[in-house]
Computed example of a mutant assay.
Amino acid sequence: MTILVLFVLLISISYISVQLIHNIGDYGKLINYVGIVRGASQRLTKLEMNLQPNDELVEYIDEILHELNTGHGKYGLVVTDCKKYNEYLSLLERKWEDLNIEIKKVRMEEDSSQLLQTSEEFFKIANDTVFEIEHYSKEKSNYLMTLIIIISIVGIVAWIILIIQYNRRLIKLEKLNVDLKNIAYKDELTGANTIEKFKLDAEQYIYKYKDKKFAIFYIDFENFKYINDIFGYDYGDMILKRYSNIMMDDIGKYEVFAREIADRFVALRCYVDKETLLRRQQVD
């Protein structure tokens, strides 16, 4: 459930990040086109004051301003939810209307001084509009950076949780495997190896350490049934356990001890000389 929640969170944040990246590209386009309007208005003013009317340039600025305010047009401009930027756009459009009135006056050979002043006011509003959308774009970029950091943290946390859970399951499986092996390869009464485990280990030692000497002891208690009959099975079990503990304490490297069945045991001993080997077994 934790992994699922982290995964959904990661997908959601990633989707928002993709949207922000796309929007930031759109904001950059808005900055460029407001800048185009600003520069084009200055060029238009210069042309009109030099009695060189340019209706194509007027129409060009009209198209861009209309699309900046509505989001509809051929330039692919979008409308944002930045309140202050939208307010500046409205001011810019109204000032553009004033500028058009002054242009008409100049073309009718009236006073041109007001055109220059209106053009400067339009330029200032266009500047403020550019600064506002730049500021808004920067805010969104910072927000995007925060989301990227969150995505990274969520991803790292998710991986850590996955690794922890994987390791826990692995440890649990290993423990279960050890428990199963203990059940399969350990004699329930004495705790010694079973004969199956003895065969596996003995074969491995003899095959792997060919330079060493090995001897196999087969141990069988004489008249053990008599002990059980006289003293009881609990006492007989205690003797088998005690003997197994003594043997297991003495088992060294490359050696194996196991209970075959009932009172019969088997041991693989590694030795250098027979005398020492027999002495060890007699002590045991």
Rank of each mutant, 00 (worst) to 15 (best):
F198A: 07
L162A: 08
K138R: 14
Y166M: 10
Y205V: 08
L92Y: 02
E67K: 05
F224C: 05
Y185L: 01
Y60N: 13
R168A: 12
E174M: 03
L189W: 04
V130L: 01
I31T: 14
A158V: 04
V178N: 14
A184Y: 01
K46N: 10
N86K: 10
I151F: 02
I183K: 14
V34D: 03
A262M: 04
Y166T: 12
K208F: 05
D263W: 01
Y233M: 09
V157Q: 01
V34G: 00
N142F: 11
C82W: 02
E109A: 15
L180C: 03
N177E: 10
E260A: 13
L173I: 12
I195S: 14
E139T: 10
I103T: 10
L278Y: 15
I261A: 12
E222D: 15
G35Y: 05
N54W: 07
E63K: 15
N50W: 00
T129D: 01
I148T: 12
E87W: 04
K138I: 06
D263H: 08
V157K: 04
D179A: 15
I161M: 02
K74L: 09
R279D: 09
I21M: 13
L6Y: 05
Y226I: 11
F265W: 05
D111H: 06
V8G: 01
N50V: 04
C82R: 01
L57V: 07
E174I: 13
G73H: 00
S90Y: 12
F231H: 15
L176Y: 11
T194H: 00
Q282C: 07
V78R: 15
F265A: 10
I21W: 03
V8A: 00
D201P: 00
D55N: 15
E275H: 11
Q281F: 13
Q204E: 13
R259H: 03
V5N: 00
T70C: 02
L277Q: 09
F257K: 09
G232A: 03
L9I: 12
K212C: 08
Y271G: 02
I148D: 02
M145A: 15
E59H: 07
Y185E: 11
Y243L: 15
D187S: 05
L65W: 00
M49L: 12
L68P: 01
W159Q: 11
Y27T: 06
I125E: 08
D55K: 15
A267V: 07
Y143M: 13
A258E: 03
G35M: 03
L57W: 04
V34W: 00
A192V: 06
D263S: 14
Y209L: 03
T2V: 10
L91K: 14
L47I: 07
F224S: 12
M247G: 05
L189K: 09
S17T: 14
S137M: 03
T194I: 03
K241G: 02
P53N: 03
E196F: 09
D201Y: 08
Y60R: 09
T276M: 07
Y254A: 08
K84Y: 06
K83I: 11
M248I: 09
W159I: 14
K104L: 10
N245L: 09
A215C: 11
Y218Q: 06
L47Q: 15
N100M: 11
T2L: 05
K212W: 04
D237G: 12
A258R: 00
G191P: 01
D201F: 01
N23E: 12
N245D: 13
